[in-house]
């Protein structure tokens, strides 16, 4: 459905913006390595099913491989331009994010199996994985425009999934309570950023010619 596709496209665009931005500037300034490491953990735990060699669809499999690969690649290039990283604070204690997500995964899951717990863990972790990046953005005061576009596209992805879940509930009678709860939490985490983004990008672009 249209919401699902839009969400996936936003996700693709976000990672392309990120890699393009770091590659062209040859600098990872303002990019949180910790957020990227968390995303790597998110994708590893969510796509464990790849190991079972159960390929639901070509589309899903290719997208999963792309998200895994591109996240590892982004970590690689951020590390490559790592000198700048020491110049700003990326000292968010990610243990405080990972531990509660693990507890949440143990409490909320559909079956007490490794795959199901990992799946739930990945949903909760994804919801909060952007926090180190938002923290870096805030400590910098003024964020780079590309970084801001990257965060916006990433937030848009999960926001698009919410109408997708409503749509699937009515058309397929399927509802994943954990996905929805984590997805709503994620969109709330982004909501403050969305407001700042709206003021910064849309209002500024309207009054460009001085």
């Amino acid at each position: 459905n249209i919401f699902r596709i839009s969400g996936d496209v936003a996700h693709l665009v976000s990672i392309i913006i990120l890699i393009h931005s770091v590659e062209t500037k040859k600098s990872a300034k303002g990019i949180s390595l910790k957020t990227q490491l968390l995303y790597a953990l998110v994708f590893i735990t969510r796509y464990l099913s790849l190991l079972k060699l159960e390929f639901g669809s070509v589309y899903n499999t290719l997208m999963k491989l792309f998200f895994l690969g591109s996240t590892f690649y982004s970590i690689f290039i951020i590390k490559k331009y790592t000198r700048e990283i020491t110049q700003y604070v990326d000292d968010f204690k990610i243990g405080y994010l990972v531990a509660p997500c693990f507890v949440a995964a143990l409490v909320f899951n559909y079956k007490f199996t490794v795959i199901e717990i990992a799946w739930s863990f990945s949903l909760w972790l994804e919801a909060v994985a952007i926090l180190p990046q938002l923290f870096v953005l805030q400590s910098q005061g003024q964020g780079d425009l590309l970084t801001v576009h990257y965060i916006f596209a990433l937030g848009l992805y999960r926001a698009f999934y919410i109408p997708n879940w409503v749509y699937r509930y009515f058309t397929e009678e399927r509802l994943d309570i954990i996905s929805v709860a984590a997805g709503v939490l994620q969109t709330l985490v982004y909501s403050d950023f969305f407001y700042v983004y709206y003021n910064k990008v849309f209002k500024n672009s309207l009054k460009l010619p001085a």
Partner: peptide, 10 residues
């Protein structure tokens, strides 16, 4: 009945 995981999503 409605609570089903959506492992077909990304």
């Amino acid at each position: 009945k409605l609570v089903k995981n959506l492992h077909d999503e990304l």
